[in-house]
Design a protein around this nucleic acid. Structure first.
Lengths: 137, 137
DNA sequence: AAACCAATGCAATGGAAGTGCAATTATTAT
DNA sequence: ATAATAATTGCACTTCCATTGCATTGGTTT
């Protein structure tokens, strides 16, 4: 089991208290979070710091960005099996229309999508919307 | 062949000069357009009018909204075969990373996506990113 | 023609994303 | 250990898109 420090260091991210807290916050969350979510969790910290921390995490490929169609970008930790640094990685996310939460279905791979002749597919963003398991129960 | 007036009236949209112009503009475009695109095409009209016109079109299901991940929502006419009013309709859009344009691939159907037990799929948003036919030539 | 309702224009607001710069903190070299 | 250096954080500000309230215009109906 890797510690948070080890995770950060192994990706070339300098360890700070703030970064460890934010990483911990993300790790505890089951769902993708917005910048506002993080802001609300760390009211003492500045928005810019939180913003740039997430951007750093994103650059170093320990979080990935999710566009679930709500208009607000969300972020989630890259789990085992999530190859966010690989361009051709296929993301599958589920957005609940009831509780408005977005979760990563990392173990659900996306089938190959055929595109017309002349088109080159580099990346696929797939968001399934509906009712999640908690809300449908 | 339906006239623009007929299209609008059949959906319960009152016909105005502005609305006909905007509809015509959308019909002539091959790609999905942003609100700014429409603004630039109709500099004499007010942004609010254009905005609300698009929203009206959207409510009446003659245009659909596209979130291609650029952060700016785009709109496109619902073509034949596009059942935007039907919840389970599967949208497939292609976003070109080179020219930044987004087009609807209405004739390309999306394979059924399996979701875990307890999840109910109502809608799927699928955006393929890459290089379009014009840019790859 | 009067009354009514929808459509349009103007002004302003809100929210999220992003940037420049100063201040602070951590790291490295002497 | 201390000075020099580099990275991180906080504050203020800006930009851009989306959205709303209200007054005004224009078209319909009686």
């Amino acid at each position: 089991m890797e510690t948070i420090e080890q995770v950060l260091e192994s990706r070339g991210i300098r360890v700070t208290a703030m970064r460890m807290l934010i990483y911990k916050f993300l790790a505890e969350k089951e769902v993708a979070v917005t910048l506002s979510d993080i802001e609300n969790a760390f009211v003492k910290a500045d928005r810019t710091t939180l913003y740039r921390t997430i951007k750093t995490f994103e650059e170093k490929a320990i979080v990935h960005q999710i566009d679930d169609g709500t208009g607000i970008t969300k972020y989630a930790l890259c789990e085992q099996g999530c190859n966010c640094d690989i361009k051709t990685d296929l993301h599958l996310h589920f957005h609940c229309n009831n509780c408005n939460e977005t979760i990563c279905l990392t173990d659900h791979k996306i089938p190959q999508i055929k595109v017309p002749d002349g088109f080159v597919s580099e990346n696929v963003n797939l968001v399934v919307k509906g009712i999640c398991d908690k809300c449908s129960g």
